[in-house]
C-alpha cells in the first residue's frame, strides 16, 4: 500500500496511459493486487526459461548453460532425423483426441443418468465413488493393470483361458494399448467430467422440461432436444480447453501403465515420456530440451488457435 502511494505521486506519463486520474488510481491498485503473483511467476516460471537455450546447445555439465557450445538446430535435426519425432507426435495427438471423445461421451451419459435419479439418496454415494480413482496414483494403478494383464498368471488371461481363448502377451502387443490406456484414463477422469456436466444439466431451466413433458415428450426426446442442445456450449468450451492441452500427455499414465516397455513404444511413447527418458535414462539434456521446446511451440500454436475459436464463440471463456 505504501508503494502505491509513492508511485501515484510520481509522474504524468502514467496518467497519459491510464486516462483519468481516477482510472489511474484504480489501475494501479489492481496492479498492486496482481503484483505478488506476477513476481512469483517471474521467478519460478520466467527465470528458468533461460534453459530454453539448452535446446540449441551441446550441454556440458562443467560449462553450464551459458558456457556450453552453440550447436544451432543440430538437436532438432537429430530429433527429426528418425521417425521418433513423428511417432511421439502422432501418439500424443491421437491418444489425447481419443481421450477427449471417449471421456466427453461417457461423462455426458453418466451426467444424464445421475440427473435421472438425482433425488435418490443413492446419487450422493455415486458422486462420492466417482471421485475415488482420483486418489489412486498411476503408480499404484499400474500394479493393478499388471495383475490383470500379466502373461504369467494375469487375471484376464485366466478368464480368456476359461473361455478357451489362447492367452495374449499384453505387454508385448502394442496394438491393444490405445484401448487399455483409454479405459484407464476414462476410469480416472469420468468422475470429474460427469459432475461438471451434471452441474450444467441442473442449471437448465426446469420449465423447459415441464413444457416438454406436457407435450408428451419421452425421456429420450427430452435428452435429445433439451438437455443436449442446452449443454452444447459447455461441451464445446471444455473440449476446446482440452484441445489446447492436446500436446501435453499425462506422463504418469503413459509411463507407469505400460511399465516403460520398449516393445510398447510404437503406441505408448508420447512426447512427455520421451523427454523423461532422454533426460533420465540417456542423460541427454540437450535432446530433452529440444523435444520440450518443440512441444511448447506446437502446443502454443494449438492453444492460440483454440483460443481464437473460443473467443469467436464466447469471449468470456477465452484464455486471454
Amino acid at each position: 500500500m505504501t508503494m502505491q502511494k509513492n508511485v501515484t505521486s510520481s509522474n504524468g506519463l502514467l496518467t497519459k496511459f491510464f486516462g483519468s486520474r481516477r482510472d489511474m488510481q484504480t489501475n494501479l491498485t489492481l496492479l498492486s493486487m496482481a503484483l505478488p503473483g506476477i513476481v512469483l511467476l517471474f521467478i519460478f516460471a520466467y527465470l528458468p526459461m533461460v534453459g530454453l537455450l539448452i535446446a540449441f546447445k551441446d550441454y556440458r555439465f562443467a560449462d553450464g548453460i551459458l558456457g556450453s557450445a552453440w550447436v544451432g538446430f543440430a538437436n532438432f535435426r537429430f530429433l527429426f532425423g528418425t521417425d521418433t519425432a513423428w511417432r511421439i507426435t502422432r501418439n500424443t495427438l491421437l491418444m489425447n483426441c481419443l481421450f477427449i471423445v471417449v471421456n466427453t461421451a461417457a461423462s455426458l451419459t453418466i451426467a444424464v443418468l445421475l440427473n435421472e435419479v438425482f433425488k435418490s439418496r443413492m446419487t450422493k454415494y455415486y458422486q462420492t465413488l466417482l471421485f475415488f480413482p482420483y486418489f489412486i496414483s498411476w503408480v499404484i494403478a499400474s500394479y493393478f493393470v499388471f495383475a490383470l494383464l500379466s502373461a504369467q498368471g494375469g487375471i484376464l488371461n485366466q478368464w480368456l483361458d476359461a473361455l478357451g481363448v489362447p492367452p495374449t502377451a499384453w505387454y508385448r502387443s502394442p496394438q491393444y494399448w490405445p484401448a487399455i490406456l483409454t479405459l484407464a484414463n476414462l476410469w480416472n477422469g469420468v468422475g470429474f467430467g460427469s459432475i461438471v456436466y451434471l452441474a450444467g444439466i441442473l442449471g437448465i431451466d426446469p420449465m423447459l422440461f415441464e413444457a416438454a413433458k406436457m407435450d408428451g415428450a419421452s425421456k429420450w426426446q427430452q435428452v435429445r432436444y433439451i438437455t443436449m442442445p442446452m449443454l452444447l456450449p459447455l461441451v464445446i468450451i471444455l473440449t476446446l480447453l482440452a484441445i489446447g492441452r492436446i500436446f501435453n500427455a499425462d506422463f504418469g499414465l503413459f509411463y507407469f501403465l505400460p511399465r516403460d516397455t520398449p516393445m510398447l513404444y510404437p503406441t505408448t511413447d508420447v512426447i512427455d515420456t520421451f523427454v523423461y527418458r532422454s533426460l533420465v535414462q540417456l542423460g541427454d539434456i540437450s535432446m530433452a530440451a529440444a523435444a520440450g521446446f518443440y512441444q511448447s511451440v506446437v502446443g502454443f500454436a494449438m492453444v492460440v488457435t483454440a483460443n481464437w475459436i473460443v473467443r469467436r464463440i464466447n469471449a468470456d471463456y477465452s484464455l486471454y
Binding site: 503473483g37 511467476l41 519460478f44 516460471a45 520466467y46 527465470l47 528458468p48 526459461m49 533461460v50 534453459g51 530454453l52 539448452i54 550441454y59 548453460i65 533426460l279 539434456i285 530433452a288 530440451a289 520440450g292 511448447s296 502446443g299 502454443f300 492453444v303 484464455l319 486471454y320
Partner: peptide, 14 residues
Amino acid sequence: VFFTLLFHGGMVPF
C-alpha cells in the same frame, strides 16, 4: 500468465 502454461525452462535451470 498463460505463456507459463506451455513454456518451461526444464529441470536443470529450475
